[in-house]
């Protein structure tokens, strides 16, 4: 299974330097770190997912001595590794550029959001195709823009909510978040294995 994760790294090798470059540009421009981190995690993870979505890639992986369970699991474990590496890079980048150390609450917040999104994105993509996900995201974006015209200060409100959540000094609350996101991720994992096992190539 580790071989499958390594395979994703090899396949991503060419795009990663570009990603790194963009990442640093974004960090310089001072956009919200959480936002940049979430977008980068999702892009990298879904990019790795897409390369294996073609029928030829499925044919190859399933003909090699791997089980379908392993193929799906490699994506879920790989996603965690990608999240870790992205956050590590951003953490170091932030420290180098802005001389500031990211709060662990922010890191937890980013990880939870990304894991939550992936929990929906993976089973959906296994069932249909990730390209529909993009269309879905487009739809959500339109809805967001429309909502924005009704509630002009939506962005500020979101920021406020995020700030309140992050400033909550309640370890029980954090444990609750970790547990529920973890549970969601595991359920999504099991669901994806079920969907993928029934796929026909």
């Amino acid at each position: 299974m580790l071989n499958l994760i390594r395979k994703d790294m090899i396949l991503q090798k060419k795009t990663l330097p570009f990603m790194l470059l963009f990442l640093f540009i974004y960090l310089f421009v001072n956009v919200s770190t959480s936002w940049v981190a979430i977008v980068f995690c999702i892009v990298i993870i879904m990019n790795a997912f897409q390369t294996d979505e073609t029928s030829s890639a499925n044919l190859l992986l399933n003909s090699l001595p791997y089980t379908r369970k392993e193929i799906v699991s490699s994506k879920y474990i790989g996603a965690l590794i990608f999240i870790f590496l992205t956050l590590l890079t951003i953490f170091i980048g932030n420290w180098m550029i802005h001389r500031e150390i990211m709060q662990w609450e922010v890191l937890l917040f980013i990880t939870s959001i990304v894991m939550g999104l992936i929990s929906f994105a993976f089973p959906f993509s296994y069932l249909f195709n990730s390209k529909y996900l993009l269309i879905g995201f487009g739809g959500v974006f339109v809805v967001y823009m429309v909502t924005l015209s009704f509630i002009p200060n939506l962005n500020d409100r979101v920021r406020e909510v995020v700030q309140t959540v992050l400033s909550l000094d309640n370890s029980l609350f954090y444990i609750g978040i970790i547990l529920s996101v973890g549970l969601l991720y595991v359920l999504s994992w099991i669901l994806s294995i079920r969907i993928y096992s029934r796929k026909v190539f």
Binding site: R6, I10, S56, L59, L60, S63, L64
Partner: peptide, 18 residues
């Protein structure tokens, strides 16, 4: 059925450990 954007050497690297 191989990935198209990599070389044969890289493809070997992917398949060999299997």
């Amino acid at each position: 059925i191989f990935y198209e954007n990599i070389t044969l050497a890289e493809m070997k690297k992917i398949i060999k450990p299997a």
